[in-house]
Lab assay of single mutants.
Amino acid sequence: IQLFSRPDFLGDHFSFEDDQAALPASFRPQSCRVHGGSWILFDETNFEGDQHILSEGEFPTLTAMGCLASTVLGSLQK
């Protein structure tokens, strides 16, 4: 999965292949690309809070990911 700090796959980005119990504190994903398989994104660290399940594809905004525009993602799980 690739996470981007701005909508439309712009800004800083991080790529992950494994579960992340905590995303970098200063990084707030605003768009993402899922390459193969599914990922669960969580509103809180340690895989807690609301879950957003994404299958392979491109998600140019938080709302395209099924999140509110104000959502701050905290962790993710493959």
Rank of each mutant, 00 (worst) to 15 (best):
G36A: 11
F59R: 03
D8T: 03
G37Q: 01
L73W: 14
S70L: 03
A69V: 09
I1Q: 13
T63C: 11
L62G: 01
I1E: 02
L41T: 02
L62Q: 02
I53V: 14
D19S: 12
E56I: 10
V34C: 03
W39A: 00
D19T: 08
I53M: 13
H52L: 08
D18G: 11
L68S: 15
Q77S: 10
L62S: 06
F47H: 01
H52Y: 15
R33N: 02
F9P: 01
I53H: 12
F27V: 01
L3H: 00
P60C: 02
F59M: 00
L23N: 05
D43E: 15
T45S: 13
M65W: 08
I53Y: 11
S70P: 10
L54T: 03
I40W: 02
S5R: 01
Q2M: 09
K78Q: 07
E44K: 15
H52A: 03
H52E: 06
I1A: 02
C67A: 08
V72Y: 12
R28W: 10
T61L: 02
Q51K: 13
A21Y: 07
I1R: 01
R6K: 15
Q77I: 03
C32W: 01
S26C: 11
I1G: 01
L76E: 03
F42S: 05
E58D: 12
F27T: 04
Q51W: 11
P60H: 01
F16E: 01
S75P: 08
T45Y: 11
A64V: 04
L68T: 14
P29N: 00
G37A: 08
D50C: 12
A21N: 10
A25C: 10
P7D: 09
P7E: 15
F59P: 01
G49C: 05
E44R: 14
N46C: 07
L76C: 12
A69L: 08
S15H: 10
W39H: 03
T61E: 07
A69G: 14
S55G: 13
G66V: 03
T71F: 12
E56Q: 11
L73T: 09
S31T: 08
P24R: 06
G66H: 04
L54H: 00
L54F: 04
L41H: 01
R33A: 03
S15P: 04
G66P: 00
P29Y: 06
P29E: 01
D12R: 11
Q51L: 07
A22R: 13
I1C: 05
S38W: 08
Q77V: 06
A22P: 01
F27S: 03
T61M: 00
F47E: 01
G49S: 02
A22N: 15
S70H: 12
T71I: 05
I1M: 01
S15M: 14
E56Y: 07
D43K: 08
C67H: 02
V34D: 02
I1S: 03
F9Y: 11
E58V: 06
F16K: 00
Q51D: 08
L73Y: 06
T45W: 08
G36M: 09
E56A: 10
P7A: 09
E44T: 06
P29I: 13
R6G: 12
R28L: 09
A21L: 09
F16G: 05
D43W: 02
L23A: 04
T45A: 15
